[in-house]
Simulated assay, not measured.
Amino acid sequence: MDRFRVSTIGFTKTSAKSFFDRIKRSGAKKVLDVRLHNTSQLAGFAKADDLRFFLREICGADYLHEPLLAPTDQMLKAFKRDKGDWPTYTNRFLDLMSDRQIETRFSPEMFQDSCLLCSEATPHHCHRRLVCEYLNEKWHGSLEVKHL
């Protein structure tokens, strides 16, 4: 069975230097932005247009926005703004990925040398980890995941 290397990273609670150094060291050739909204002023160096430029110049990596791998606005608000609990959010997001059938809309090969990006500093309570776990279950462990 082939294995495909994928990393994940969040941009909060880190400096731009640390963020881009980690991506560069990972060997990622493309960053898959799995945020629903990628243009917020609060994102600083991780706003879509700036990020595309920085990734190309600093890391030699491409940038792709993949909102199909993001939760809905309603899910985000229920979890973040309304202080929802993690198990409920997890179950709702797993159901959403299943409904969207993301495992048929992507292939393991598409994730080779990629890095999934969202805002959370760590993967513990972050949907980027759930995306990797869901796809690994569907694709029989074909993704070799490293959280940066």
Rank of each mutant, 00 (worst) to 15 (best):
A46I: 03
E120G: 02
K30S: 14
R129S: 06
K138C: 12
D73C: 10
L68E: 13
F20V: 05
N91M: 06
E137I: 10
R128I: 01
T12A: 03
T12K: 06
A16G: 05
S119T: 14
L143A: 10
A121Y: 08
R92N: 14
Y63M: 04
A61M: 01
H125L: 11
Q112K: 12
H125N: 11
M110R: 11
A70T: 02
L36G: 06
D113N: 15
K24G: 01
D49Q: 09
W139D: 11
K47M: 05
S114A: 14
T104R: 15
T88E: 05
K47E: 01
N91K: 12
I23Y: 02
R3F: 12
D99H: 12
V6G: 07
E103V: 04
S26D: 06
C126F: 03
A78V: 04
S114I: 07
W86P: 07
S18T: 11
R25C: 01
V131K: 08
F79E: 09
E66Y: 07
S119K: 11
S142K: 15
H37R: 12
L32S: 04
H37I: 14
F106M: 12
L64P: 00
R56K: 09
G60C: 00
S18M: 08
Q112Y: 09
H147S: 05
K13P: 00
K83G: 03
C126L: 09
T14N: 11
L36E: 11
H37M: 07
T122F: 10
A43F: 01
C115A: 15
H127F: 00
